[in-house]
């Protein structure tokens, strides 16, 4: 059966339009706050700090900080996109429309991921103003960026289906994703940690994302790049499986 492309386009454009309307909140705010890190750690105190694996400190933190924004923004964009219609009741229209799971996901998750990729690109360009850096494997970097944006937009979508209040939408990025990213080797190499904490850290899935992305930038990372890629793909598949189950069972969407 052919894809209902008009529906995908309608949802996708509707969601991008929502971003445009809240441009400051969804793009400008994360770009500004991330830039502050680059100014402080890259330009100001970065020069006083040692290099890590031969990478200047300012450059070292760029992939992780960019990911931080991507992860939190993907999650909240993905979750708001579907939570908002549930909250206002306009979801009735989506449920009564001739659309398949794939089309709904292409629309909502596609739009959320698009925003994140745009945001990530803006942050990386902005970073270049404060810290000189080069990307060794640009194709891999782009691949990681897109995969991670998609995965976390999917994750956000699941969150948006599951949540029964706005607090939960905010708590997950704030209290789970942000700490895990900070502790996932964004600001330090995990090799700097005592051995016990190195092992503990490996249970943090975000370690693999940060390290995979950093490897694409500088060709060096704490975790093997292919392991990172595998973990990213695994996480993405887990989200797809969860979404499929949600729609199959009508969980929280259809009564």
């Amino acid at each position: 059966m052919s894809l209902n492309l008009h529906a995908v386009r309608a949802i996708y454009m509707f969601e991008l339009h929502r971003t445009w309307r809240t441009l400051f909140q969804s793009i400008a705010a994360p770009v500004i706050s991330t830039s502050l890190y680059f100014i402080v750690f890259g330009s100001a105190i970065g020069s006083q700090m040692t290099t890590i694996d031969g990478v200047s400190y300012g450059a070292f933190i760029i992939p992780g900080l960019t990911l931080l924004s991507i992860l939190t923004e993907s999650t909240s964009n993905g979750s708001f996109g579907i939570y908002l219609p549930r909250f206002t009741g306009t979801i009735y229209e989506l449920l009564s429309a001739p659309v398949s799971v794939a089309e709904v996901l292409l629309g909502y998750v596609g739009a959320a991921a698009t925003k994140s990729v745009i945001l990530g690109s803006i942050i990386l360009l902005t970073a270049r103003l404060f810290v000189p850096y080069e990307i060794v494997h640009p194709v891999w970097a782009a691949l990681f960026l897109v995969m991670i944006a998609l995965t976390f937009s999917l994750f956000g979508f699941i969150l948006g289906v599951w949540a029964d209040g706005f607090e939960k939408l905010q708590i997950v990025p704030l209290l789970i994703i942000t700490p895990l990213t900070f502790l996932g080797g964004t600001f330090y190499s995990i090799k700097m940690l005592p051995e016990f904490w190195q092992t503990v850290t490996l249970f943090n899935p975000i370690v693999y994302l940060v390290n995979g992305f950093r490897w694409a930038f500088y060709g060096k990372a704490d975790v093997n790049a292919m392991v990172s890629f595998g973990m990213t793909a695994l996480f993405m598949l887990a989200c797809v499986a969860a979404i499929t189950w949600i729609f199959k069972t009508g969980y929280r969407l259809r009564s």
Binding site: N4, H6, A7, R9, A10, I11, F14, H17, R18, R21, T88, G89, T90, Y92, E93, L94, S96, A97, P98, V99
Partner: peptide, 29 residues
């Protein structure tokens, strides 16, 4: 099928034109 639900559920920040055009697209036209 077209449905006018019992509850008044509408997008808030969209324009009338945008929301009606959205519905048409969603239904595959």
């Amino acid at each position: 099928i077209g449905l006018v639900p019992q509850e008044l559920a509408t997008d808030m920040f969209e324009t009338v034109w945008a929301t009606v055009s959205f519905s048409r697209g969603l239904f595959g036209l």
